[in-house]
Design a protein around this nucleic acid. Structure first.
Lengths: 200, 200
DNA sequence: ATACCTTTACTAACACTGTTAGGTAAAATA
DNA sequence: TATTTTACCTAACAGTGTTAGTAAAGGTAT
């Protein structure tokens, strides 16, 4: 039954080429300029073929979002592994998150920039649980060894993520009035405060 | 020359009705569902009339964004006036900002949610300077009376705004997994840390 | 080998979208 | 009264997401 296999393989190739073409278009002209017809032209197939692989345009963007989180998670895992203490892990991950956002602005904007994603959309991103777990672990360690071991780790995770995201998104939209170094300082300041806030 | 006046007045009425209709549509179905034709139908004029008042659709959204910031600024001014010390002013403004976001999610999403606004767009929002000044003032006071009077107030303003925005936007997209009270606590925690971070 | 069915891919259309060119009729000016 | 300006419209252009219907090709069963 090699035939069915070959077909399946081919189908997955087409699916991958759709995502690849979509991604290239997003990087080139921004996600607002992405269109089904442009994708179809890029992969040299007719438009309806795309709907054999994705329910709609949103599903394609959702897949790119997932890709983005997978890539982010990878980078975070690597950063975490190279650090030893929970403090260093958190610090390294914060910097990595920041760097990911600015080295992959296209990804970051797809991940967070399509309007504010609805709850249903967020729940479809299974990669988020890995992301949470990754950061939650050193936070828990830090809390356990700190002076307030009854602190809610989810609260701290939430804070960490929120503030990092806020820093990045405000920074992305107004890079003129606030200099680069300034933001690096804000980031540094935040990380220090965040970590010491869990110890004491 | 009452005629020209009457005409001018009428023209401004139409302009206002465009914004009103646009706003109503945004509140009803979200900003992604806003269309020029729907606005035209609502105001009972043909489509091209809208282009006599606004260069394009983006200009309408930009005006709504400005309206949002004006409303936010108003609320912040009121909150600031009712508080005495810089600490209380900052705290009150943070809560007011938070409340504004969740009582006017439509505004907040127009203000921040249309993709990540470009630098050029941000520069067109003159209301932002009022917003900055409003928060900058108590920050400066607090820094001056603190132990590190050479702290950059812009850095602190940037931090304040970023983290507040991050808190809100992360919260808006995932209200299921994290409870309401949790976020109130995160907010409280942040404000306390922010203020004490400038004193000491 | 013939008949059948499923898969694959297409063209063409529907119902929208933002935007604008061009025309008409009314109102203001000369 | 003649002319110009304005106010407003219809109709179109070029694009969007999405889908109905069709034709051909591939594999399966009789």
């Amino acid at each position: 039954m090699g035939i069915a296999e070959r077909k399946k393989r081919h189908k997955e190739e087409v699916r991958a080429s759709i995502l690849e073409a979509a991604w290239q278009l997003v990087v080139q002209d921004g996600w607002q300029a992405l269109s089904i017809r442009k994708i179809a032209e890029a992969i040299e197939y007719s438009v309806p073929v795309i709907y054999d692989h994705f329910a709609n345009k949103e599903a394609i963007l959702l897949e790119l979002t997932k890709q983005g989180f997978r890539k982010l998670n990878e980078a975070l895992i690597k950063a975490k592994q190279q650090a030893q203490s929970p403090e260093e892990q958190i610090e390294a991950m914060a910097y990595t998150y920041w760097r990911f956002a600015f080295e992959n602005t296209a990804y970051y904007q797809v991940m967070y920039g399509l309007g504010i994603p609805s709850c249903e959309t967020v729940n479809q991103i299974s990669e988020l649980s890995t992301f949470s777990e990754l950061i939650l672990e050193p936070i828990k360690e830090l809390i356990a060894s700190g002076k307030h071991p009854d602190t809610d780790p989810f609260l701290k995770l939430h804070t960490f993520w929120s503030m990092l995201h806020g820093l990045i998104s405000i920074n992305m939209m107004g890079a003129e009035q606030h200099k680069e170094e300034l933001n690096q300082m804000v980031l540094k300041d935040f990380i220090r405060g965040f970590i010491s806030g869990m110890k004491a």
